[in-house]
């Protein structure tokens, strides 16, 4: 019988990678679905562009209509790519958080990334509406990062404790949330409306600049996550087992936590708190390729990217011409999905 594992091992670099045989097939299928969804997403809109012309424009070929190139390449393509990348970031961050806390309900929100980014972004949108929106991702990123760091510092007392981390997180999330609501309650109503869209998560009008700001984080920390996949495997079996396998758990958990925070902050900063992607993707990918992290991480990433691209497309099509933010769609789909998970385990 063929072994269910696929091993990639290099003779020169000390690196080996062992994944389930299902992984390549699953990844290729997911990639194809995503690609088709992206092409539909880019050609769909108020100004319809035929799919063939869309592909020609993306590849830089002459499609016979100068408007097409502008609409596709400047307006629609970056938006869809941002959706894809944000989904990847959230999914990897979610997989890591669920792995290190052994908690199927964990998401980077626990460690304050979302509430911090929300506070910073809403402050900018409501209190300083005149500041260029180019600053929005930067400010939100810093906000998410600082609240996450604050929680870690306040919870540190001669060592990190998961329980303390969660409880301190609740306290600080409440403070950030209260300040955010404060501005929502008293701010100028037009700015508040804008802030609400940001809060639920949207890729509306995202541009190449924002994509380029997000990419380095995604590449660096996404690769780091893949490299750390084996350690994450051990940690997800529990502290005792991990220690028994010779892992330095505090250090490895620290690195993984930072990876997760960085990916989540960068994603949330770019597109707001798109709900449930970080929670759903790991569960779906576990169903598809089994529980080892080497296979789960890339699969979850692909699923996350696909989910956000599809959600963005659905949000634009459902009540056209009114556009719903993609975060609304992912939450509306994600919650019943969770109930389904709950009932089916019976």
């Amino acid at each position: 019988m063929k072994s269910p594992w696929l091993v990639i091992r290099s003779q020169k670099v000390p690196f080996s990678f062992r994944v389930d045989r299902r992984v390549p097939t699953v990844l290729i299928i997911l990639a194809m679905v995503t690609l088709v969804a992206m092409i539909i997403s880019v050609s769909y809109g108020e100004y319809y562009v035929p799919p063939l012309a869309t592909i020609q424009s993306i590849l830089g070929l002459d499609s016979g209509n100068s408007d097409y190139a502008f609409i596709i390449r400047t307006l629609r393509l970056p938006r869809t790519l941002v959706a894809f990348c944000v989904g990847i970031g959230l999914a990897i961050a979610g997989t890591i958080t669920q792995g290190i806390t052994h908690n199927p309900l964990a998401s980077p929100g626990i460690i304050g990334v979302n509430s911090g980014a929300a506070l910073a972004a809403v402050t900018l949108l409501i209190v300083f509406p005149s500041v260029s929106s180019a600053w929005l991702p930067v400010v939100a990123f810093l906000g998410g990062l600082s609240v996450a760091i604050l929680i870690y510092l306040f919870a540190w007392k001669g060592g990190s404790s998961p329980v303390r981390l969660i409880l301190v997180g609740i306290g600080l999330n409440f403070i950030a949330g209260s300040l955010t609501s404060f501005m929502i309650t008293f701010g100028n109503i037009n700015n508040v409306s804008q802030a609400m869209v940001w809060l639920i998560g949207s890729v509306y009008r995202r541009s190449w600049e924002q994509l380029l700001m997000l990419l380095p984080w995604l590449v660096i920390f996404g690769l780091l996550a893949l490299v750390m996949a084996r350690e994450l495997n051990a940690l997800s079996l529990g502290d005792e087992v991990a220690r028994g396998l010779g892992n330095r758990i505090e250090r490895q958990r620290g690195i993984l936590l930072i990876t997760s925070i960085a990916l989540a902050s960068a994603s949330v900063a770019t597109a707001g708190s798109i709900g449930f992607v970080g929670l759903m993707s790991p569960h779906i990918s576990r169903k598809l390729v089994g529980a080892t992290q080497e296979g789960q991480l890339p699969t979850a990433a692909m699923i996350g990217g696909m989910l956000v691209v599809l959600a963005d497309l659905a949000g634009r099509m459902l009540f056209a011409p009114t556009e719903l933010p993609c975060g609304l769609i992912t939450s509306a789909i994600g919650a019943p999905f969770f109930i389904y998970l709950l009932i089916r385990k019976r």
């Binding site: 609400m196 639920i200 509306a332 919650a335 109930i339």
Partner: peptide, 19 residues
């Protein structure tokens, strides 16, 4: 789990209306 999921679902409808 049921509470968290239903809360999220209802909140997303609330946000949708408010948007």
């Amino acid at each position: 789990i049921a509470g968290a999921a239903l809360t999220e679902f209802l909140s997303s409808i609330t946000s949708g209306i408010l948007i």
